[in-house]
Design a protein around this nucleic acid. Structure first.
Length: 637
RNA sequence: GCUGCCGUAGCUCAGUCGGUAGAGCACUCCCUUGGUAAGGGAGAGGUCGAUGGUUCGAAUCCAUUCGGCAGCACCA
């Protein structure tokens, strides 16, 4: 007897071992048809796999979120079969489901072309139409190795060899095509449907290690139905339209050129956004009790040796020299901040000491890593280091998290996730110190009421960190803020303060940033707003434009008045029709167009037109100034 | 850095089989003074990423190199 407990709590008994499919059919004929897989005590199983013990069971259908994962994994297998049918001699390696889709890595000397993708996709549809049954088989380990070696699948054989001896070796067969796989899978290839598309081909290292052979990875996306696929492809188009590199060019914000790879040439408009953001941050930090400092760009390698950067990151630092000294352009601000902390004698009364710097840093990123404003070699962090006692970690963490949330809210970011990154393989400091730091950070997050997800091994070399991830307007996640607990650098660089007891103590150092870097954050803002910045951030806030040249003088008066009120204003008195000028400034994403014609000039008014709308609001100039000034106020001022 | 793809006017792109380069937008000038998303005309603008090779002749074919893009690796 096997007792099966269903999600609603009801129990069904079966004479003997029973498959998920049989259970589904037993519940209803329609469920039997819709069933794709089955959860057995929390693990997803193939529908036909026999359950020979009492278990909690739920049937997976296309409606379930987990069905997508299954579907995508099947898509990967079907793609692999298609590839091997079309290109004999190609070896398969691994092919998992991923967010929004799947990929499979192949070993083949000749690269796949975009034309190949179309052929492969067509063959996949063919395999779907064949309605091949997908069968799970348990194989003997040595036989499996012999089989895959026999057919020239070296990578598969290697995977089996590296599996722990206790692991059950399962092979999935669809038609006469077989693949080593943990499963589970759909019952047959037609269950995949046709809502999939191969998207790109790229190189990828075997087992993700740059020392290994480069395989060819084919990416695809797969969904439960055509509508979902169309929506997803539409989202990709939307993201492309918002690409900050494209908008940066269109809006004349910045450019890059080869003489300064990975460094931004900020144009007047882009720099206006940058300066506004910096003013905003400066105000928020000052209000939160931070003291702003500024430290050198070029620092003797001696200091980097002491700090541990030389040992851990020398390859990514720009190094130069003068006379007999080796100097490095700073990749971080922390060692310099410790030097300021060490000037004079600090008392426990000085703590917590919150030292902020909009620190310009350089890191020699690999050329392939550079990506517009998002990944650059020269950038400026909204960096600060909080020197404090162990006891103060909790309250400082809480205060920081509150500040961070409030800052993000000012840009409209409300959905924030936090990752907890613990000790990495390459690190400074003893395990005892790391235990202490991780414990302290855990306690502080708990005290601040923050939920975190683990991010093992991703901490900084000197301490564990929280990573704050925000979600943008089209659902993409960006990691921006960070908070790191560091017992290592104060020790290595010999920082201390005099405690209540009159003895010297080491302070703890909290490294923290909210925006991360101004460059990257502006890139995120551009994409989030699709270039349509809120008024306070917009590079040009108002364009005053005329209908005929009669209004030119008045237009300049209006502009001067608005400028006096602190607004960023342009005047357009070109000999063009108003339609033309409205269209052009709308394309440039200027939030407010102030139109002045004969009527406005005579009455001392302006007609305001907002980006995205076609309504006009005719106001007395003084009212318009007051209104726009209020709307353009930098938050937190 | 690795793999693949791509480099033609300021921008977006066309250019067949190898025969010496084209469009739209932007720009300049002229006409037009027009009330809320493109008024008309004319003109200027290019060592076809760079170097080398094949050829009577190269934007086009080959090699090298630089850069861009996508993914991988990296991201203190």
């Amino acid at each position: 007897m096997v007792a099966i407990t269903l999600p609603d709590g009801s129990v069904r008994s079966f004479e003997g071992p029973v498959s998920g499919l049989e259970i589904a059919k037993n519940i209803s004929t329609s469920l039997g048809k819709a069933a794709l897989a089955v959860f057995v005590d929390g693990d997803m199983w193939d529908l036909t796999r026999v359950i020979d013990r009492d278990a909690k069971v739920s049937i997976v259908t296309a409606k379930d979120e987990s069905a997508l994962e299954l579907l995508r994994h099947d898509a990967a297998h079907i793609m692999a079969q298609a590839v091997q049918e079309l290109y004999p001699g190609t070896q398969v390696t691994i092919g998992p489901s991923i967010e929004n889709g799947f990929y499979y890595d192949f070993a083949r000397d000749e690269p796949f072309s975009t034309d190949d993708l179309e052929k492969i996709e067509a063959r996949m549809r063919d395999i779907v139409d064949r309605k091949l049954e997908i069968v799970r088989e348990v194989w003997d380990r040595t036989e499996a190795i012999a089989h895959f070696e026999g057919i020239g699948e070296k990578y598969k054989a290697e995977i089996i060899r590296d599996l722990p001896g206790t692991e059950t070796i399962t092979v999935y067969r669809q038609g006469d095509w077989k693949d080593l796989c943990r499963g589970p899978h759909l019952p047959s290839t037609d269950k995949l449907g046709k809502a999939f598309k191969l998207t790109k081909v790229a190189g990828a290292y075997w087992r993700g290690d740059a020392k290994n052979a480069v395989l060819q990875r084919i990416y695809g996306t797969a969904w439960a139905n055509q509508k979902q696929l169309d929506d997803y492809l539409h989202m990709l188009e939307e993201a492309e339209k918002r690409d900050h590199r494209r908008l940066g060019k269109e809006m004349d914000l910045f450019h890059f050129q080869l003489e300064a790879q990975g460094a931004v040439f900020w144009h007047p408009k882009g720099w206006a956004v940058y300066r506004t953001l910096r003013t905003y941050m400066r105000n928020r930090l000052e209000a939160a009790g931070y003291l702003e400092v500024n430290t050198p760009q070029l620092v003797d390698s001696h200091l980097w040796e002491l700090s541990g950067h030389w040992a851990n990151y020398r390859d990514n630092m720009f190094v130069t020299g003068s006379e007999d000294k080796t100097l490095a352009v700073k990749p971080m601000n922390c060692p310099c901040h410790i030097q300021i902390f060490k000037q004079g004698i600090k008392s426990y009364r000085d703590l917590p000491l919150r030292m902020a710097e909009f620190g310009a840093c350089h890191r020699n990123e690999a050329s392939g890593a550079l990506h517009g404003l998002m990944r650059v070699r020269a950038f400026t962090q909204d960096d600060a280091h909080i020197f404090c006692t162990d006891d103060q970690i909790e309250s400082e963490t809480k205060a920081f998290c509150d500040l961070l949330r409030s800052v993000y809210a000012d840009f409209g970011f409300s959905e924030i996730k936090v990752k907890f990154s613990d000790r990495p393989e390459n690190r400074a400091g003893s395990d005892d110190v790391w235990d202490r730091a991780e414990e302290a950070l855990k306690r502080a997050t708990a005290a601040a009421g923050i939920e975190t997800s683990p991010n093992p091994g991703e901490g900084a070399f000197y301490g564990p960190k929280l990573e704050f991830v925000l979600r943008d307007a089209i659902g993409r996640d960006w990691q921006c803020g960070t908070l790191q607990v560091d017992y290592v650098l104060p020790d290595r660089l010999d920082a201390d303060y005099v405690g209540e007891d009159g003895n010297r103590h080491r302070p703890v150092m909290l490294h923290r940033a909210i925006l991360g870097s101004f460059e990257r954050f502006i890139g995120i803002l551009i994409e989030n707003f699709a270039g349509k910045f809120p008024l306070w951030l917009a590079p040009t806030q108002v364009v005053v434009t005329t209908i005929t040249s009669d209004g030119d003088d008045y237009a300049h008066t209006v502009a001067a008045t608005l400028r006096k009120a602190g607004l960023r204003v342009e005047v357009d008195t070109r000999n063009e029709k108003i339609n033309y000028k409205v269209r052009e400034h709308s394309h440039k994403k200027v939030p407010v167009i102030a139109v002045v014609g004969k009527r406005e000039a005579e009455e001392g008014k302006v007609a305001l037109r907002r980006l995205g709308g076609d309504a006009q609001e005719v106001l007395a100039l003084t009212d318009a100034v007051a209104k726009l000034m209020e709307e353009a106020k930098v938050p937190g001022l």
